[in-house]
Protein backbone atom coordinates (compact mmCIF):
# COMPACT_ATOMS: atom_id res chain seq x y z
CA UNK A 1 0.00 0.00 0.00
CA UNK A 2 2.85 2.45 0.70
CA UNK A 3 4.77 3.17 -2.45
CA UNK A 4 8.32 4.11 -1.61
CA UNK A 5 9.27 5.29 -4.99
CA UNK A 6 9.56 8.19 -7.35
CA UNK A 7 6.08 9.42 -6.52
CA UNK A 8 6.92 9.41 -2.81
CA UNK A 9 10.05 11.35 -3.69
CA UNK A 10 7.99 13.94 -5.56
CA UNK A 11 5.64 14.31 -2.60
CA UNK A 12 8.55 14.67 -0.16
CA UNK A 13 10.01 17.34 -2.39
CA UNK A 14 6.70 19.20 -2.36
CA UNK A 15 6.65 19.16 1.45
CA UNK A 16 10.20 20.51 1.58
CA UNK A 17 9.30 23.28 -0.87
CA UNK A 18 6.21 24.15 1.16
CA UNK A 19 8.30 24.36 4.34
CA UNK A 20 10.83 26.61 2.64
CA UNK A 21 8.30 28.82 0.86
CA UNK A 22 7.82 31.78 3.26
CA UNK A 23 11.50 32.81 3.55
CA UNK A 24 11.99 32.34 -0.19
CA UNK A 25 8.90 34.37 -1.02
CA UNK A 26 9.78 37.13 1.45
CA UNK A 27 13.25 37.22 -0.11
CA UNK A 28 11.77 37.81 -3.57
CA UNK A 29 9.27 40.30 -2.17
CA UNK A 30 6.25 38.73 -3.91
CA UNK A 31 3.88 38.61 -0.91
CA UNK A 32 1.03 37.75 -3.27
CA UNK A 33 2.40 34.26 -3.72
CA UNK A 34 2.38 33.57 -0.01
CA UNK A 35 -1.30 34.51 0.00
CA UNK A 36 -1.96 32.19 -2.90
CA UNK A 37 -0.11 29.36 -1.18
CA UNK A 38 -1.86 29.90 2.13
CA UNK A 39 -5.19 29.81 0.37
CA UNK A 40 -4.19 26.64 -1.47
CA UNK A 41 -3.16 24.91 1.75
CA UNK A 42 -6.37 25.91 3.52
CA UNK A 43 -8.41 24.51 0.67
CA UNK A 44 -6.16 21.45 0.67
CA UNK A 45 -7.29 20.76 4.25
CA UNK A 46 -10.89 20.92 3.07
CA UNK A 47 -10.15 18.70 0.09
CA UNK A 48 -8.29 16.25 2.33
CA UNK A 49 -11.36 15.98 4.53
CA UNK A 50 -13.43 15.37 1.41
CA UNK A 51 -10.92 12.75 0.31
CA UNK A 52 -11.60 10.84 3.50
CA UNK A 53 -15.25 10.31 2.63
CA UNK A 54 -15.07 10.32 -1.18
CA UNK A 55 -11.73 8.64 -1.82
CA UNK A 56 -11.68 6.21 1.09
CA UNK A 57 -15.36 5.81 1.87
CA UNK A 58 -17.05 6.25 -1.50
CA UNK A 59 -19.47 8.80 -0.05
CA UNK A 60 -19.68 11.56 -2.64
CA UNK A 61 -20.69 14.70 -0.78
CA UNK A 62 -21.74 17.70 -2.82
CA UNK A 63 -22.19 19.80 0.28
CA UNK A 64 -18.80 19.89 1.86
CA UNK A 65 -18.39 23.65 1.53
CA UNK A 66 -21.01 23.90 4.28
CA UNK A 67 -18.33 22.87 6.77
CA UNK A 68 -15.97 25.55 5.50
CA UNK A 69 -18.79 27.98 6.16
CA UNK A 70 -19.43 26.60 9.65
CA UNK A 71 -15.75 26.89 10.50
CA UNK A 72 -15.53 30.43 9.17
CA UNK A 73 -18.69 31.56 10.98
CA UNK A 74 -17.24 30.03 14.16
CA UNK A 75 -14.62 32.73 13.86
CA UNK A 76 -16.82 35.50 12.49
CA UNK A 77 -19.77 35.34 14.85
CA UNK A 78 -17.73 35.37 18.09
CA UNK A 79 -15.58 38.13 16.59
CA UNK A 80 -18.80 40.08 15.93
CA UNK A 81 -19.37 39.93 19.69
CA UNK A 82 -15.74 40.86 20.20
CA UNK A 83 -14.66 37.44 21.37
CA UNK A 84 -11.29 36.84 19.76
CA UNK A 85 -10.08 33.84 21.74
CA UNK A 86 -8.74 31.38 19.16
CA UNK A 87 -9.34 28.34 21.35
CA UNK A 88 -13.01 29.23 21.53
CA UNK A 89 -13.12 29.75 17.76
CA UNK A 90 -11.38 26.49 17.01
CA UNK A 91 -13.46 24.60 19.58
CA UNK A 92 -16.65 26.01 18.09
CA UNK A 93 -15.53 25.17 14.57
CA UNK A 94 -14.84 21.57 15.52
CA UNK A 95 -17.94 21.12 17.64
CA UNK A 96 -20.41 22.80 15.27
CA UNK A 97 -19.16 21.12 12.13
CA UNK A 98 -19.09 17.74 13.85
CA UNK A 99 -22.63 18.31 15.12
CA UNK A 100 -23.90 19.34 11.69
CA UNK A 101 -22.19 16.33 10.15
CA UNK A 102 -23.74 14.04 12.73
CA UNK A 103 -27.26 15.37 12.25
CA UNK A 104 -27.25 15.53 8.46
CA UNK A 105 -25.10 12.42 8.08
CA UNK A 106 -27.57 10.41 10.12
CA UNK A 107 -30.15 11.17 7.41
CA UNK A 108 -27.90 11.13 4.32
CA UNK A 109 -26.26 7.84 5.13
CA UNK A 110 -29.57 6.03 5.08
CA UNK A 111 -29.28 6.42 1.32
CA UNK A 112 -26.65 5.71 -1.32
CA UNK A 113 -25.52 6.78 -4.75
CA UNK A 114 -27.24 9.71 -6.41
CA UNK A 115 -29.61 10.16 -3.49
CA UNK A 116 -26.67 10.69 -1.16
CA UNK A 117 -25.14 13.29 -3.47
CA UNK A 118 -28.39 15.24 -3.73
CA UNK A 119 -29.16 15.15 -0.03
CA UNK A 120 -25.74 16.40 1.02
CA UNK A 121 -26.24 19.15 -1.55
CA UNK A 122 -29.65 20.02 -0.17
CA UNK A 123 -28.46 20.22 3.42
CA UNK A 124 -25.59 22.51 2.53
CA UNK A 125 -28.02 24.76 0.65
CA UNK A 126 -30.25 24.75 3.71
CA UNK A 127 -27.40 26.21 5.72
CA UNK A 128 -26.61 28.66 2.94
CA UNK A 129 -30.16 30.00 2.73
CA UNK A 130 -30.45 30.08 6.50
CA UNK A 131 -27.43 32.33 6.82
CA UNK A 132 -28.61 34.44 3.89
CA UNK A 133 -31.78 35.12 5.84
CA UNK A 134 -30.12 36.16 9.12
CA UNK A 135 -29.72 39.93 8.92
CA UNK A 136 -27.93 40.11 12.24
CA UNK A 137 -24.88 38.41 10.75
CA UNK A 138 -24.85 40.39 7.54
CA UNK A 139 -27.16 38.13 5.50
CA UNK A 140 -25.93 38.08 1.89
CA UNK A 141 -23.14 40.57 2.50
CA UNK A 142 -21.51 38.63 5.30
CA UNK A 143 -19.37 40.08 8.07
CA UNK A 144 -15.91 41.55 8.30
CA UNK A 145 -13.56 40.04 10.88
CA UNK A 146 -11.46 42.82 12.29
CA UNK A 147 -8.98 40.75 14.22
CA UNK A 148 -7.76 37.22 13.65
CA UNK A 149 -8.13 34.52 16.30
CA UNK A 150 -5.82 35.08 19.25
CA UNK A 151 -3.89 32.27 20.87
CA UNK A 152 -2.27 34.25 23.69
CA UNK A 153 1.39 34.84 23.04
CA UNK A 154 1.93 31.42 21.49
CA UNK A 155 0.88 32.18 17.95
CA UNK A 156 0.22 35.43 16.15
CA UNK A 157 -1.97 34.67 13.15
CA UNK A 158 -1.82 38.31 12.03
CA UNK A 159 1.66 37.54 10.81
CA UNK A 160 1.32 36.03 7.31
CA UNK A 161 4.13 33.52 7.75
CA UNK A 162 2.76 32.42 11.14
CA UNK A 163 -0.67 31.82 9.63
CA UNK A 164 0.96 29.96 6.76
CA UNK A 165 2.92 27.67 9.04
CA UNK A 166 -0.10 27.07 11.25
CA UNK A 167 -2.09 26.00 8.20
CA UNK A 168 0.75 23.85 6.90
CA UNK A 169 1.17 22.19 10.30
CA UNK A 170 -2.54 21.45 10.48
CA UNK A 171 -2.53 20.04 6.96
CA UNK A 172 0.46 17.77 7.56
CA UNK A 173 -0.99 16.65 10.88
CA UNK A 174 -4.29 15.79 9.21
CA UNK A 175 -2.59 13.94 6.38
CA UNK A 176 -0.54 11.91 8.83
CA UNK A 177 -3.61 11.16 10.95
CA UNK A 178 -5.51 10.11 7.85
CA UNK A 179 -2.67 7.85 6.81
CA UNK A 180 -2.88 6.15 10.20
CA UNK A 181 -6.63 6.03 10.11
CA UNK A 182 -7.04 4.39 6.72
CA UNK A 183 -4.63 1.63 7.64
CA UNK A 184 -6.11 1.08 11.09
CA UNK A 185 -9.08 -1.21 11.70
CA UNK A 186 -11.52 1.65 11.32
CA UNK A 187 -10.16 2.62 7.93
CA UNK A 188 -10.20 -0.97 6.70
CA UNK A 189 -13.91 -1.20 7.53
CA UNK A 190 -14.60 2.08 5.71
CA UNK A 191 -12.62 0.93 2.69
CA UNK A 192 -14.36 -2.43 2.66
CA UNK A 193 -17.74 -0.75 2.90
CA UNK A 194 -16.90 1.49 -0.06
CA UNK A 195 -16.21 -1.48 -2.26
CA UNK A 196 -18.73 -3.99 -0.97
CA UNK A 197 -21.13 -2.88 1.71
CA UNK A 198 -23.30 -5.97 1.72
CA UNK A 199 -20.27 -8.20 2.27
CA UNK A 200 -19.20 -6.01 5.19
CA UNK A 201 -22.66 -6.33 6.72
CA UNK A 202 -22.59 -10.07 6.22
CA UNK A 203 -19.31 -10.06 8.11
CA UNK A 204 -21.14 -8.49 11.02
CA UNK A 205 -20.15 -4.85 10.63
CA UNK A 206 -22.79 -2.22 11.26
CA UNK A 207 -21.38 -0.18 8.40
CA UNK A 208 -23.84 2.67 8.93
CA UNK A 209 -22.16 3.50 12.24
CA UNK A 210 -18.68 3.37 10.77
CA UNK A 211 -19.64 5.50 7.80
CA UNK A 212 -21.34 8.02 10.06
CA UNK A 213 -18.25 8.26 12.26
CA UNK A 214 -16.13 8.77 9.16
CA UNK A 215 -18.50 11.45 7.92
CA UNK A 216 -18.33 13.29 11.24
CA UNK A 217 -14.52 13.15 11.32
CA UNK A 218 -14.44 14.55 7.81
CA UNK A 219 -16.88 17.33 8.66
CA UNK A 220 -14.92 18.39 11.74
CA UNK A 221 -11.70 18.41 9.74
CA UNK A 222 -13.27 20.59 7.08
CA UNK A 223 -14.49 22.89 9.85
CA UNK A 224 -10.85 23.54 10.70
CA UNK A 225 -10.25 24.56 7.08
CA UNK A 226 -13.14 27.00 7.48
CA UNK A 227 -11.61 28.32 10.70
CA UNK A 228 -8.44 29.12 8.78
CA UNK A 229 -10.25 30.53 5.78
CA UNK A 230 -12.26 32.97 7.93
CA UNK A 231 -9.05 34.12 9.57
CA UNK A 232 -7.21 34.33 6.28
CA UNK A 233 -9.81 36.37 4.38
CA UNK A 234 -10.86 38.51 7.39
CA UNK A 235 -14.35 37.93 6.10
CA UNK A 236 -17.28 35.53 6.21
CA UNK A 237 -20.28 35.26 3.92
CA UNK A 238 -22.82 32.62 2.96
CA UNK A 239 -21.19 32.52 -0.46
CA UNK A 240 -18.38 30.45 1.10
CA UNK A 241 -20.79 27.51 1.37
CA UNK A 242 -22.56 27.89 -1.94
CA UNK A 243 -22.90 24.53 -3.62
CA UNK A 244 -20.63 25.58 -6.48
CA UNK A 245 -17.87 25.84 -3.86
CA UNK A 246 -18.56 22.22 -2.95
CA UNK A 247 -18.35 21.25 -6.60
CA UNK A 248 -14.99 23.01 -6.83
CA UNK A 249 -13.71 20.99 -3.88
CA UNK A 250 -14.64 17.78 -5.68
CA UNK A 251 -12.98 19.07 -8.83
CA UNK A 252 -9.75 19.75 -6.92
CA UNK A 253 -9.84 16.28 -5.40
CA UNK A 254 -10.33 14.61 -8.76
CA UNK A 255 -7.51 16.62 -10.36
CA UNK A 256 -5.21 15.39 -7.60
CA UNK A 257 -6.55 11.84 -7.79
CA UNK A 258 -9.31 10.80 -5.36
CA UNK A 259 -8.19 8.26 -2.78
CA UNK A 260 -4.51 9.15 -2.84
CA UNK A 261 -3.29 10.63 0.43
CA UNK A 262 -1.43 13.56 -1.06
CA UNK A 263 -3.88 14.31 -3.87
CA UNK A 264 -5.54 17.20 -2.01
CA UNK A 265 -2.30 19.18 -2.02
CA UNK A 266 -1.44 18.74 -5.69
CA UNK A 267 -5.06 18.96 -6.82
CA UNK A 268 -5.74 22.21 -4.99
CA UNK A 269 -2.50 23.76 -6.21
CA UNK A 270 -3.21 22.74 -9.79
CA UNK A 271 -6.77 24.07 -9.58
CA UNK A 272 -5.73 27.47 -8.23
CA UNK A 273 -2.86 27.81 -10.68
CA UNK A 274 -5.20 26.95 -13.54
CA UNK A 275 -7.67 29.52 -12.27
CA UNK A 276 -4.97 32.19 -12.03
CA UNK A 277 -3.58 31.37 -15.44
CA UNK A 278 -6.90 31.16 -17.30
CA UNK A 279 -8.42 34.26 -15.67
CA UNK A 280 -5.32 36.26 -16.61
CA UNK A 281 -5.47 34.97 -20.15
CA UNK A 282 -9.08 35.35 -21.18
CA UNK A 283 -12.21 37.05 -19.97
CA UNK A 284 -14.23 33.92 -20.66
CA UNK A 285 -12.07 31.68 -18.54
CA UNK A 286 -15.08 29.97 -17.00
CA UNK A 287 -15.81 28.55 -20.43
CA UNK A 288 -12.27 27.17 -20.72
CA UNK A 289 -12.54 25.85 -17.19
CA UNK A 290 -15.81 24.09 -17.89
CA UNK A 291 -14.62 22.57 -21.15
CA UNK A 292 -11.41 21.44 -19.51
CA UNK A 293 -13.36 19.79 -16.71
CA UNK A 294 -15.59 17.95 -19.15
CA UNK A 295 -12.64 16.86 -21.26
CA UNK A 296 -10.73 15.72 -18.18
CA UNK A 297 -13.50 13.38 -17.06
CA UNK A 298 -14.44 12.12 -20.50
CA UNK A 299 -11.00 11.54 -21.97
CA UNK A 300 -8.32 11.52 -19.28
CA UNK A 301 -9.56 8.60 -17.19
CA UNK A 302 -9.24 8.23 -13.46
CA UNK A 303 -6.29 8.84 -11.23
CA UNK A 304 -5.59 12.53 -11.75
CA UNK A 305 -2.12 13.81 -11.01
CA UNK A 306 -1.51 10.95 -8.61
CA UNK A 307 -2.33 8.46 -11.33
CA UNK A 308 0.16 10.18 -13.63
CA UNK A 309 2.82 10.01 -10.91
CA UNK A 310 2.13 6.34 -10.32
CA UNK A 311 2.79 5.69 -13.99
CA UNK A 312 6.27 7.08 -13.32
CA UNK A 313 6.74 4.34 -10.73
CA UNK A 314 5.51 1.42 -12.76
CA UNK A 315 6.82 0.27 -16.06
CA UNK A 316 4.10 0.22 -18.70
CA UNK A 317 2.08 -2.93 -18.27
CA UNK A 318 3.23 -3.44 -14.71
CA UNK A 319 0.63 -3.87 -11.98
CA UNK A 320 -0.38 -0.32 -11.15
CA UNK A 321 -2.23 0.65 -8.02
CA UNK A 322 -5.66 2.03 -8.59
Amino acid sequence: MTPVSRSAGVYALIVVLLLAAPPVISFTGQAFYLDLLTRALILAIAVASLNLIVGCGGMISLGHAAYIGIGAYSVGIPAYYEVYNGFIHLGLALACSAAFALLTGAVCLRTRGLYFILITLAFSQMLYFTLVSIDEYGADDGLLIHRRSEFGGALDLEHPAALYYAVLAALLLFLFAMHRLIHARFGRVIFGSKHNDSRMQALGFDTYKYRLACYVISGAMCGVAGFFLGNFTHFISPEMMDWTRSAELIFMLVIGGAGALFAPVTGTAAFLLLEEFLSGWTLHWHLMFGLLLIALVMFAGRGGLHGALMRLDHRPGGPGKR
Binding site: R180, L181, H183, A184, R185, F186, R188, V189, F205, A213
Partner: peptide, 15 residues
Protein backbone atom coordinates in the same frame (compact mmCIF):
# COMPACT_ATOMS: atom_id res chain seq x y z
CA UNK B 1 -11.31 -8.21 12.95
CA UNK B 2 -15.08 -8.44 12.88
CA UNK B 3 -14.95 -11.27 15.42
CA UNK B 4 -12.29 -9.92 17.72
CA UNK B 5 -13.90 -6.94 19.24
CA UNK B 6 -14.92 -3.50 18.08
CA UNK B 7 -13.19 -1.75 15.21
CA UNK B 8 -13.35 1.89 16.23
CA UNK B 9 -9.58 1.89 16.34
CA UNK B 10 -8.22 4.85 14.47
CA UNK B 11 -4.49 4.76 14.98
CA UNK B 12 -2.62 1.45 15.03
CA UNK B 13 -2.22 -0.17 11.61
CA UNK B 14 -4.12 -3.40 11.18
CA UNK B 15 -1.35 -4.89 9.05
Amino acid sequence: QSVCGHCFRFWSPLA
